[in-house]
Design a protein around this nucleic acid. Structure first.
Length: 470
DNA sequence: ATGTAC
């Protein structure tokens, strides 16, 4: 794949083989050293009907189902633009939530082990069923699919600020529960309030460094402060919805005269029965994901309150696997776009009307979870931005799970982390080993590239004190 | 990511 360096941290793939727009990759050569397959995917995405501006990739790009993870693609609804489940990913509404404690590390004194033990007992994790919330039945599940974290808060599992500081106020209105299959519902019923496995986690962190004092203060963050970061998604429900609708679109594509270079790019027009069906089901999964993170927050709050008398306030909650209808100016004209962000975080600029009032002057918090045992970052959306106001979403995997697990055993890794002062409460040794830091790019380099490319500005760096893993 | 396969 030929990359033209337009300027530092911005590369272009010129249109070829049916690409309707160029590819644009924000990264350093170093970060792209093993990216040939995923760059191929960037080019494939550029062939989709209705795509505008470019097929974008963030610095943490790596290979994914159809679309690369770290990909951003927007299609114009009035130009037959398509929506593709592969552009969102299997874990619909996977995202990150950051809570700030009303104490610093010293304030916890010797209570961290007890907090970690409490979280270890209280936070459901790993594959399969099990969540903190036992639902009364399908009707209550539907209330979650429609109401997201708003419903969870109404039921007493949170506070008003949890909604104002959550993307979309905690819920989107366009969920269509009739497009969520029986199987997806069955899986979803028993997993509300659970982390899942793989790279999902709940971490107790400390703000190690503040790079932008005024913005950090507005976000509610200060050096030394204890935080809780939750990274998880919509579990089996989102996975099943993706599976169901990929199949439907794969069968329907012909009828719309759409051909794609890879079947995993299955798509139909946004403005088609299949497109609307997917977007309605996806919105339901988005609400489920927010409710999931809300209930885990509630559970973590209970542990912090009981063990240490500490309060946790929501800084922000943002998804990095979602397609959203947004209006953006393309070639001087405002257009309604379906913006796919897959492993990419929305990063609205200062002044954006959808930001909560107390954050509006500062830009949207962009939450970047790091690799286990390394740093995580908080960034902020910038006035100009790029890629429809998007940023990276994490470190980006480089080793397969299998290869990662061959480099270290879970027990060895836990001992290493504990020696570094990081408490670990794993569910499975194998799962822990698969998440070893060596399997990922350096999140600091990814964040530096994101800032240097002009996608966001760095606000704070957080380091783990304890990690709860699936 | 995922009851790590239809």
């Amino acid at each position: 794949m030929e990359l033209v360096e337009e300027r530092p941290y911005r590369f272009r793939i010129d249109p070829h083989d049916g690409m309707r727009v160029p590819g644009v990759v924000f990264a350093s050569r170093d970060l792209l050293s093993d990216a040939e397959q995923s760059l191929e995917q960037v080019a494939n995405v550029a062939t989709l009907p209705g795509i505008v501006s470019a097929s974008y990739a963030m610095p943490d790009i790596h290979w994914g189902y159809g679309f690369p993870i770290g990909g951003v693609a927007a299609t114009a609804v009035d130009a037959g633009g398509v929506v593709s489940p592969g552009g969102v990913g299997f874990d619909i509404s996977c995202g990150v939530r950051l809570l700030a404690a009303d104490c610093d590390r010293q304030g916890l004194r010797g209570m961290l082990p007890a907090i970690m033990d409490g979280l270890g007992r209280r936070i459901p994790r790993g594959a399969g069923p099990g969540g903190v919330w036992r639902l009364s039945g399908q009707e209550e599940l539907e209330r979650i699919l429609r109401g997201g974290s708003r419903y969870a808060v109404e039921q007493g599992h949170g506070e008003e600020r949890d909604l104002t500081r959550c993307e979309d106020g905690g819920a989107v209105a366009d969920a269509d529960v009739t497009q969520v299959s029986e199987r997806a519902r069955e899986r979803g019923l028993v997993q509300v309030g659970s982390l899942g496995s793989a790279n999902h986690f709940l971490e107790v962190q400390e703000v190690a460094e503040v790079y932008d004092e005024p913005v950090a203060t507005a976000f509610g963050l200060a050096r030394g402060q204890v935080c809780v970061m939750i990274h998880c998604g919509s579990r089996g429900l989102g996975h099943q919805i993706c599976t169901d609708h990929v199949r439907l679109m794969d069968r329907a594509m012909n009828r719309y005269g759409i051909t794609v270079p890879d079947r995993q790019l299955a798509c139909t027009p946004v403005d088609s029965p299949e497109g609307r069906a997917y977007l309605g089901a996806m919105a339901a999964a988005a609400n489920y994901g927010r409710a999931n993170r809300q209930l885990l927050s509630d559970a973590a709050r209970g542990v912090f309150r009981r063990v240490a008398g500490v309060r946790l306030s929501l800084v922000y909650d943002v998804s990095h696997n979602l397609a959203k209808m947004e209006t953006h100016t393309v070639d001087g004209t405002p257009r309604l776009l379906c913006v796919h962000r897959k492993g990419a975080t929305r990063a609205f600029p200062p002044g954006h009307p959808e930001l909560p009032e107390d954050l509006r002057d500062f830009g949207q918090p962009v939450l970047i979870p790091g690799t286990m045992g390394t740093a995580s970052y908080v960034l902020a959306g910038v006035p100009v931005g790029d890629a429809f106001h998007s940023a990276c979403h994490g470190a980006g995997r480089t080793l397969s799970r299998h290869r990662a697990a061959r480099t270290v055993t879970g027990r060895e890794l836990r001992a290493r982390l504990e020696r570094a002062g990081i408490a670990v409460r794993p569910k499975s040794w194998r799962g822990l080993a698969e998440e070893t830091p060596e399997a990922y790019k350096d999140v600091s380099a990814v964040v530096a590239a994101t800032e240097a490319a002009g996608l966001s500005r760095t606000v704070a760096r957080l380091v783990p004190l304890g990690v709860v893993k699936g």
